[in-house]
Every structure is written in C-alpha cells, then in structure tokens.
C-alpha cells in the first residue's frame, strides 16, 4: 500500500461533514451567555471555557490525525504550521498565520484574521475581563498534550477587546517522552 500523503487543509475541509457556521457561532454564543449568567464571575467563565476546550482538544486530535494523514512532525515549528494551516482549516474553515518565533523556537504566535466564533458578537462593558474565545486556547493545549507536547496557550490580541486581530501565544513547556511498552492492563 502506498504511504498516505498528508492532505492540504482545503482538501480535508472539503471532505469532512460541514454545517453552516451560524449554528456553531450562535450555539457557542448562547452557551457563553448562559455561563456568564450561571457562574457570575468572568474569571470562572474563562476557566470553564478553557476546560471545555481542553476536553474537546483531546478528542479532536484523533479526528485530526485520522483525516489529515499528517504524520509525526519533526519539531515544534512544523507542529505550529500544521495547526495553523491544516488544523484550523479543517475544523473552522479558516487558516491562521504563524509568526513571532522566539530565538530558541519554543514559542510562537498564531494569528487569526477571520474567526467564526465571533460573528455577531459584541461584549458589553460588564464582561471586559472575558476571553470570549478561550475555548480555542484550550483546544490547542489539549490536542498538543495528546501528541506529547505540554504547552501554555495565552491570548495576546483579541479583536473583541479592540485589537486588530486574534493572536494566540503558544509556548512549548516540555516534550513528554513516550513510554514504551504501554501497559495494556492498566
């Protein structure tokens, strides 16, 4: 059998089941709104969104690997590129740009100009501390953790807070060595 060729973000996105983005955007929006009502503290909402993202990320990575045919990335740089060009495209239909690498290649920024999560969204004054898209940082953290990379993901720029783009800072904390042999009986 011929080796599987990694597919482009466009190709993968074209092949997955898709739904109209409004349903997604409004569902997410309604959920955040309800969370703000129920949890009261903006900080707590940020935390819960991140946790939800993490839980989503650790599952989405499987779908991502299965459908994109991406094999092992040689370094963190390649991983970041794959997230930006294939990962974002495959799920959200948009791509991100990777920039601002630090000298030792362990932290970079993912910049999103188009972000389907925030269509129709405006933050009232009462939720100024809210990281509305915090689910995204959780997804990236969770997904990378499943492929042996412990990361810290933070928001640098957020258009809902008046910046000119969405910028996520992804910092590689450590590579977790894989342990062989796996113990099946645990």
């Amino acid at each position: 059998m011929a080796p599987l060729v990694p597919r482009s973000g466009d190709a993968v996105f074209a092949s997955v089941e898709r739904v109209n983005a409004e349903l997604f955007t409004l569902t997410y929006g309604a959920m955040v709104r309800q969370l703000l009502t129920d949890l009261e503290e903006v900080e707590e909402v940020n935390k819960q969104l991140d946790q939800m993202g993490y839980n989503i990320g650790i599952r989405l990575i499987d779908e991502f690997l299965a459908k994109s045919n991406v094999s092992r990335c040689v370094d963190f740089k390649e991983s970041a590129d794959v997230i930006a060009k294939v990962g974002f495209k495959m799920f959200l239909g948009v791509t991100a740009t990777v920039t601002n690498w630090d000298a030792d290649g362990t932290s970079c920024s993912l910049v999103l100009e188009d972000n389907p999560l925030v269509d129709f969204v405006e933050l009232p004054d009462t939720c100024q501390g809210l990281y509305y898209c915090n689910v995204l940082s959780g997804v990236i953290r969770g997904a990378l953790e499943m492929v042996s990379m412990k990361t810290e993901v933070t928001w640098v720029r957020d258009m809902l807070r008046g910046d000119d783009a969405y910028e996520l800072r992804v910092k590689l904390l450590k590579q977790i060595p894989e342990e062989y042999p796996y113990k099946d009986d645990e």
Binding site: V16, R18, V19, A21, L23, F24, M31, M52, F91, G93
Partner: peptide, 13 residues
C-alpha cells in the same frame, strides 16, 4: 454561507 466542520458543533454541544 460560511461553514465549519460538523464536529465543532458536536464537540461544543
């Protein structure tokens, strides 16, 4: 209109 992967909606739900 714009589309996203169905798994996004399912995951959030």
């Amino acid at each position: 209109g714009k589309e996203v992967a169905e798994s996004c909606v399912e995951s959030v739900m």
